[in-house]
Simulated assay, not measured.
Amino acid sequence: MPRQRGAPSLLAVFAHPDDESLFAGGTLARHATAGARTAVVTATWAATTHRAAELAEALRILGAGTPRLLGYADSRVPESAPDSARFLDVPLDEAVGQLVAHIREFRPEIVITHDAYGGLTGHEDHVHTHRVTMLAFHAVGLERLYPGAGEPWQPSALYLATHPRSVTTAWGGYLPATGKAMLTVPDEQVTATVDVGPWLEQKVAAVLAHRSEVERGAAPGLIAGLSGAERELLLSTEWYIRHNPVSALTALTALTELMA
């Protein structure tokens, strides 16, 4: 991701606690080290849960502030937010409006989120977070959309965390066999390849801060069992697709004016 004078502020939007560290931990740490304001919005899990506490520790390690939780339930874990609906079941307009409020309040120059596949495994919450973030990114600068969610603000760039097809061989030997193909993109679609090697120690520490996921053998648990060399091989690079908002934003502006 390009470095800019003055360290561009960065807001990451991910589905679950631990996604921020797994998908973009190095990028968050890199920007924070350069003096950027960084923050993370997490779509699921309530603030009173153990995973929210683990998220707070991971963000402290990455220099990414305090958790910003939408507070919806994980689609597969009802107890993640027992008093709230599943993220997938919430009216789309409500979810987009909540995220618009966070973006307008933080005023980032860059937003990052899941790619359209939702990462290698295609988790449905990841895919939905991608969709909600795309809509929020295009709405956030338009004053007549979500007027109660703060003053309009348009970030300059949206990056989608992804994996190029060329990494399939390296990753395939470490992920549990599911019978499903890994969801990667053609290498030429990747527009930003970020070397996060200097921040790998922070990234791994943030991943491992999600202790309950380590214990249950989810992705942080797999990483806990890797050697230093394996961690360097698999985790020292992060990949992104830059989304160009110009044409879509122009169309959305025109539609808003027609509806006025």
Rank of each mutant, 00 (worst) to 15 (best):
G26D: 01
A58S: 15
P17D: 07
Y72K: 03
L28R: 02
A34D: 07
S84W: 05
D74C: 10
P91E: 04
A24V: 11
T44W: 05
T48V: 12
H31D: 02
A34L: 11
L88W: 03
T33W: 06
T42P: 05
T66P: 06
L59G: 03
A81W: 06
L69P: 00
L55E: 08
R60N: 10
R68D: 01
A29Q: 02
A52T: 07
D74W: 09
L69A: 01
V90I: 11
A56S: 12
A64T: 12
S75V: 14
S80L: 14
S80P: 12
H50M: 11
Y72M: 06
F23I: 10
S84Y: 07
A73S: 13
A29P: 00
L22Q: 03
A32F: 00
A64Q: 10
A46I: 11
A34M: 08
G25M: 01
S21A: 14
A58R: 02
A15P: 10
F87L: 09
R86W: 10
W45G: 02
V77T: 15
D19Q: 04
R76L: 15
A43D: 07
A47V: 14
A36F: 01
E79N: 14
P82S: 09
A85V: 13
E57K: 14
A15C: 13
A56R: 09
R68F: 05
A56C: 08
L62I: 13
R60D: 14
Y72T: 04
S21M: 06
L55T: 02
A53P: 07
A81C: 11
A56W: 02
L28C: 02
A29F: 00
S84T: 15
A36M: 03
L28E: 00
L55D: 00
S21Y: 01
L88N: 06
A15E: 06
A24K: 01
S21G: 05
G35I: 06
T42G: 03
A85I: 10
E79D: 15
R76F: 13
L55K: 03
G65H: 09
S80G: 13
T66N: 12
S21N: 04
A52K: 05
G71Y: 00
R51N: 09
A52Y: 06
T27H: 02
A36L: 06
A81F: 07
A81I: 09
R60Y: 07
V77H: 14
A32E: 00
A85E: 14
T42Y: 05
L69R: 02
E20W: 04
G35M: 03
R37P: 05
R37M: 10
R37K: 15
A73N: 07
S75Y: 14
L28V: 04
E79Q: 15
P67E: 02
A58W: 00
